[in-house]
Write a protein that binds this DNA or RNA. Sequence first.
DNA 1: CTGAAAGCGCTTACAG
DNA 2: CTGAAAGCGCTTACAG
Lengths: 330, 330
Amino acid sequence: MKKATMNDIARKANVSQTTVSRVINDHPNVNSEVRKRVNQAIKELDYLPNKAAQTLKSNSTHLIGVSVPEIPNPYFANLISELENEARLSGYSILLQNSGYNPMTEIENMDIFLSRQVDGIIYVPTSDYSLQKIRSLNIPTVAVTLPIASLDSVYLNHALGGSLAANHLIKQGHTHFGILTQKYATCPKSKGFMHELYIQGMDTENVTVIDIDSYALNRYQIREEVNRYFNTHEKLAFTALFCSNDGAAHDAIHAAREHGIRVPEDLAVTGFDDTFVAKINKITSIHQPLEEMARTSLKIIFDRIAHPQERAPLDIQLTPSIIVRKSSTG
Amino acid sequence: MKKATMNDIARKANVSQTTVSRVINDHPNVNSEVRKRVNQAIKELDYLPNKAAQTLKSNSTHLIGVSVPEIPNPYFANLISELENEARLSGYSILLQNSGYNPMTEIENMDIFLSRQVDGIIYVPTSDYSLQKIRSLNIPTVAVTLPIASLDSVYLNHALGGSLAANHLIKQGHTHFGILTQKYATCPKSKGFMHELYIQGMDTENVTVIDIDSYALNRYQIREEVNRYFNTHEKLAFTALFCSNDGAAHDAIHAAREHGIRVPEDLAVTGFDDTFVAKINKITSIHQPLEEMARTSLKIIFDRIAHPQERAPLDIQLTPSIIVRKSSTG
DNA sequence: CTGAAAGCGCTTACAG
DNA sequence: CTGAAAGCGCTTACAG
């Protein structure tokens, strides 16, 4: 059976196509009697409006393009889930594209979004290579999880997250600290952690930094680094380890235990992101309000759609909280 | 700047719109000189074809609707990732919709897919309530992860997975077994497990079954059940526990350890699905070839698109493998 | 409150 | 090898 069109409905309900369109789009000026007849015909023919045709006329797809660097990563999977959920509440759908941390693929994704006429784009930044393209887009775009200059950005106050962790560990009585992170030099989480140590009068000179020089979440590399550290240090120089994500924390705990170091008795460990890796392994972690992140990002897009005038880009920092679990409470 | 249209390209390249269309769609009959001129204009104007318009004429969106019951679940997150990846290779994109195990939402998802003119649908079955609707769809649809009668189905041979686990545990010298599962009565994994025990002459009368009467992956409920069991049984009646998914296995291991039961020394545990929960916690698990599952499902859809004649529904069982890790090798 | 008509940006016979 | 024209299924001024 061929799909019914608006014309079929019009004929069946004995009205013009214009009127059918009005009923479907909830225009006020339709006789209630006529409206009823049209709705009846719609039901009988199982009619659903053709989005492609609507798009062509109305220039709106109710589609949001989402580009993330990896889908199975629990952090991104959660974010995607929240985005799908929030988008649905407003009648939008999600066009999901992976980028694999590849700038070429990111640019490809943007072209796919453009070609499909998405109404807005949610972009998880990775490298800088694709930024020129992304900034040039004539579509409401928000950078999420990390700030991008001259783009609406919604992200966690990472520094505050770091200081929450530091504060917690200090309260637990620790005085010697370690940091396990990626790209330490530019890591705001670590900066916040160090800053809090400093403020509270801790020795910041002798903090041990295990740094992994890679942007992507490379579990294998993290394990290698951590194991190398434990293998080359007979005695730990710290009793508390701040990790910049839950996966790293989990790996560190495993590695520590394999070297006979008890967690949390000998070593307190904290993670970051509060993914379910932290939950199921009872790792203290910094919670990211992902639902709020999704809601805020979409709200910005919807606002930009409603008010297309140029405005200065927004920079929205979300507030983290700390979820204390066994891994840091000896 | 307004988006360029095909007409703009035509004018700029001094050809008809028809010719531009031919160039874009790689029609053979175009003068190479002209083709070059058109491509030049496309580049200069940053032209991208409007998918909505293409769809309206060609009745093809190159969109695949994907409906899953929960996005953050690592198993589904992995599946989604593979689907996105495979779809991209063929020039398709993924329209991702969550259903939350809610049949009403599933039906809503199908309407969204229909309205958006997707070329195919990948559907992860949950309950039976929405099946009538889904079967009535006039779009290539494949049920994935579980078989659905009268629908193309691609899923793991779960029984074989169960028997792989049983075989492994028997080889490890176990003679008393437990099963932790959901809906035991209709669980093919458990059936396969039991069958293998039977074949190998084990005592199948005294297998302990911890059954959770819920379809959704409810971690809280699983933990409750497992703890209840350990609390009410002074001495374990089994030395090997087969769990129907990795999350359950992970919870069981935690619960066991809290009750002073060592894993794997006192109790061997196996999971199912080989998600990264199994990987990072070194749990023996039954591996699902998700990439193959994604590839096969999409291939079926593409075949149905290419050959729209009616054909009997396909029923494709994928072969599991067992990944042995520490949780079951004392 | 209702309808005829134009047009969104493409593709595709058809004619040359 | 190329182009004029029709039409995909809608929405939206415009006129009544």
